[in-house]
Simulated assay, not measured.
Amino acid sequence: MNRESDLISLSTIPTAPAGFKSGFVGIIGRTNVGKSTLMNQLVEKEIAITSPISQTTRNRLRGIITTKEAQIILVDTPGIHKPHHQLGKILVQNAKFAINSVDIVLFIVDSSVPAGGGDHYVAELLRTSPNPVILGLNKTDKQPSDYHLLDKSYLTLALPYDWPVIKFSALTGEGLKPLQKALINHLTPGPYYYPPNLVTDQPEHFIMGELIREQILHKTSQEIPHSVAVVIEKVKETSNITCVFAAINVERDSQKGIIIGKKGNMLKAIGSAAREQIQKLIMGEVYLKIFVKVKPKWRQSSLCLSEFGYRFES
Rank of each mutant, 00 (worst) to 15 (best):
G261L: 12
I270Y: 02
Q277H: 15
T238G: 08
I248D: 00
S239G: 15
I259M: 07
V230Q: 00
V235F: 10
I260Q: 02
I232A: 10
M266R: 05
V235A: 06
I260K: 04
I258G: 00
V235E: 14
Q255L: 14
V228L: 08
A229C: 12
T242I: 08
G264P: 06
N265G: 11
I260H: 04
L281I: 08
L267W: 04
I258Y: 00
D253E: 14
R252V: 09
G261N: 09
N249L: 12
Q255I: 11
E233P: 04
K263C: 10
S239I: 15
V230N: 00
A269M: 13
A229F: 04
A274D: 06
E251I: 03
G271I: 05
I241A: 07
K262V: 10
A246C: 12
K263G: 11
A246W: 00
N265K: 14
I260G: 02
A247M: 03
I260D: 03
K268A: 09
R275S: 03
K268E: 08
A269V: 09
S227H: 13
K256R: 14
V244D: 01
S227W: 00
V250Y: 01
G261Y: 05
A274Y: 02
V228Y: 01
Q255N: 15
N240R: 11
L281P: 01
M266N: 07
N240Y: 12
K280D: 15
S239C: 12
I278H: 01
G264S: 08
K268F: 12
Q279F: 05
V235Q: 13
Q255A: 14
D253N: 13
V231Y: 01
Q279K: 13
E251H: 06
T238A: 11
A229M: 05
I260T: 06
